[in-house]
Design a protein around this nucleic acid. Structure first.
Lengths: 334, 334
DNA sequence: TTGTAAGCGTTATCAT
DNA sequence: ATGATAACGCTTACAA
């Protein structure tokens, strides 16, 4: 026994007035008499009337929904980002459609297409680590859906993007190490094809130079970010004749593996070796022996800004020039 | 210069055929000739036609969207839950609207209403810790939106629910402690008003009895789950004349604080005191000195099952009897 | 095999 | 102050 939700027509029929009057009354249109308005509202109440938003979405060509694509919510970085996004969306009376790419470019594209099908009003996206084909951006431009990239952003102009400048934190990290006497500072970097990897490398070299430290390519190793890869990278460093005394790694997860492995090899942290990494893991405070510091990238600030830019676009009458916002990363000592 | 998306009408006009033929051709309706079908598809391609889903949603009274409400994505438990849900949804060609209650009953209700407004086809919800007013359930029943509760479920019949039986894990934990000689086993429980707290307490007492251990109410303390609360609870236990040698806590986050505090007080883990807690933190493997074990509740299994039940309901012709599925919690030693 | 027309629920325009 | 009508884009009886 399905009882369909009440409609404006029904209210109109019961009240023997026209649907348009009902519509206006419900929207407190000034031209409708107080009495009528009251009668309509009362009847709406009685019938448990709820406007059919799908009809409204359809008519208004707007869904009050934004789509968010990010690699994985299991990374604290992104779960904290999406929380901010949800809050901003809520303030604008929008809902959030969510999709995880799991760093899979195909899946990313598929989510994007589904978002488009669902006619989201705007899109926030943090690209997956393997996304290389950026042609979808043109597609989005054609369909005039505003897009803001954050965190992992495409290396092109004329798009909205919010990201973190990795070099400021790298500089602080190397300064911090240098100031307590380290001269052999290694970098455990990520997969070589990643922009994020290249940025770290550039920043690393620049910061060494600024601190009058010699660059030695033996001190840069790479990991594919798996546990196995992290361990292999560590082994390479440990095998060096002049072992590094300080290590900066791609992210906290890498450092966790590296620290564990180094511990097994009998190395004592903050004595034999010091660690700093790009932050994506907020629970160091519980560790008995945390690394020396983390380079923070402030996912919440990035995400909020990205969402705000998106809503500026959504609420603007005329197209807005693409914006780029960069937040400095910052070393935070533990 | 806005170019509106192409519509079926446009294709029809250009091809000088009727919109219905176009519609049928696009949907591979068997009655339409192959030639026509081809011509239509070609033209659709040329015009970059994309069906306006909002119109389809409206007409079909379906949005192919499910809403998921959960307390907070920052808890690994829930981020892993929502990943499963997203995967199941994807298999059914559904999208996921996401809302975090942050354990705030008002916000929970508000999200629920927005979901209803957006006409989601179904809802998955893990109740917040403070939700006491369950009257919204009737509202949902009236609007005939299928709902499946998971993890934190209401204590009523005639609803779909999937949750974890806390007592099996508690039993295993106490057995594990008893088998290595512990006789003074404490419970650091959560806020007293929570169902989850009451369940733990009941299970704790039952398990003690089963293992011929004496129950002493001094060994149950409560925390409000803040760091401060966790520490105070620990202090109470440490102040006891006969200090417990083993501690089961409400969840891993509590244990993290407790372990840290105990360490500061000079207690050595797995010598002076042993820990087990309900799992919500998957990164113990990186710890130098993890607790003895965690009681797993398998968020992924719960969430998947809940989603599957939801889709059964969504795809069923006739109403389905409410289902209850219980997974046993399990002690996993580290 | 294809076309015609009605309808989904709402709102905006134009009349009265 | 209120009503009639059309329109949003699509699907689907029913007709031809």
């Amino acid at each position: 026994m399905k009882k369909k939700p009440a409609t404006i027509k029904e209210i109109a029929r019961k009240l023997r007035i026209s649907p348009s009057t009902v519509s206006r009354a419900l929207n407190d249109h000034p031209s409708i008499g107080l009495v009528t308005t009251m009668r309509v509202k009362k009847m709406a109440e009685e019938l448990n009337y709820e406007p059919n938003q799908t009809a409204i979405f359809f008519k208004q060509r707007k869904t009050f929904t934004i789509g968010v694509i990010l690699p994985s919510l299991s990374e604290p970085f992104f779960s904290s980002a999406i929380s901010e996004i949800e809050d901003v969306a809520k303030d604008h009376n929008y809902m959030v459609l969510m999709g995880q790419s799991h760093d899979d470019a195909d899946r990313e594209l598929q989510i994007l297409q589904t978002f488009k099908k669902h006619r989201v009003d705007g899109i926030l996206i943090s690209l997956g680590k393997n996304t290389e084909d950026l042609s979808f951006i043109e597609l989005l431009e054609e369909s005039e859906i505003p897009v803001v990239f954050f965190d992992c952003v495409p290396n092109i102009d004329q798009v909205n993007k919010v990201y973190s400048d990795l070099s400021s934190g790298m500089k602080e990290a190397i300064e911090a190490f240098a100031s307590i006497g380290h001269r052999r500072i290694a970098l455990i970097n990520g997969p070589e094809n990643l922009l994020a990897t290249q940025e770290r490398e550039t920043a690393y070299k620049a910061a060494l130079t600024e601190n009058n430290l010699e660059y030695n390519d033996k001190y840069i190793v790479h990991t594919d970010l798996t546990e196995q890869g992290n361990i292999e990278a560590t082994e390479k460093l440990l095998a060096l004749p002049e072992r590094p005394s300080a290590v900066i790694s791609f992210n906290d997860f890498v450092t966790l593996d590296v620290m564990k492995y180094a511990r097994q090899k009998g190395l004592v942290q903050k004595k034999d070796v010091y660690f700093i990494s790009y932050a994506n893991y907020p629970l160091w405070k519980y560790m008995e022996n945390p690394p020396m510091g983390s380079i923070e990238q402030y996912p919440d600030k990035q995400a909020r800004k990205a969402a705000e830019i998106l809503f500026e676009n959504l609420e603007a009458k005329d197209p807005i020039e693409p914006k780029t916002v960069v937040f400095e990363s910052k070393l935070v000592l533990k």
